[in-house]
Amino acid sequence: MADWRPSEAQQQRLVVARRMHRRSSLLASASAVVFFAVVALALVSSPGWPTVRATFFDWSQAVEAWPDVVEGFWVNVRLFLLAEPLILLLGLAVAAVRVSRSPVLVPLRMIAIGYTDLFRGLPTILVVFLVCFGVPALQLQGVTTSLFWLALVALVLSYGAYVAEVFRAGIESVHPSQVASATALGLSNAQTLRHVVVPQAVRRVLPPLLNDFISLQKDTALVATVGLLDALGTASDAANYSFNFTPYLVAAALFVALTVPLARLTDWLGRRAMQRERAGVP
């Protein structure tokens, strides 16, 4: 095969294909430029534009708000990074309890069902309110009153219920003959779950899980409603102080900057999982 040369006809085809490809990329770029130019022009020439520009796109306001909003955003990032592993653990534990058939775990299973039913029904913002205002009001000995930790608990509780259901769906999608094979090898139910079912389920639900995490990243801004000075909280303080909305845009830009890479990662993992599924059919 080393001395293969494309035939005369094939070389011709390649030349044509290259020309066609060049033409279509040119067309794509041109249409994109025209489209965005028209949109920008429409925006800038609209009657309200000068006011909008002054209240939303004020560079000096952005520069002034930047340090505070970034510091506030660090609260969002910390909440997100701490909540994510906790949610995974809680979700996996709840899912495992729900699919277990052990009689000893019956009370736990009832709690798990009640928990997922309740917290999937409650709006996250309500959970944040209830935990951040309700728990300190109980004046329990030794329970934190720090808004940060309470807000973290609220997010974990709310998202844990979703993630538990994602895991459960993944666990139930594993082919029953895999469980039969593991049982036949003498593995216990717990070992089957741990070594055979959960690893396959996790691979399968990784893309939807990451999707949930993108939405968690945004929902960390809900903590601003209880007075925590995250990116939204600081932006809103700054906006109230200066009667200018530019700080909100700064906060928005920070959230988007964090979400986009995660979204790309999700796309990539989803594509890869799909290829694996197709290749894995025996």
């Binding site: 082919h175 003959s177 895999q178 039969a180 094979s181 593991a182 036949a184 090898l185 003498g186 593995l187 070992q191 070594h195 055979v196 690893p199 396959q200 691979r203 894995g280 025996p282």
Partner: peptide, 26 residues
Amino acid sequence: GVVFQAYNLFPHLTVLDNVMLAPRKV
């Protein structure tokens, strides 16, 4: 020992790990 018609092996493990699982864990 049991071998079924299909879907016997665990797809997330290498062949070696498939074979080693029961001797180790069971």
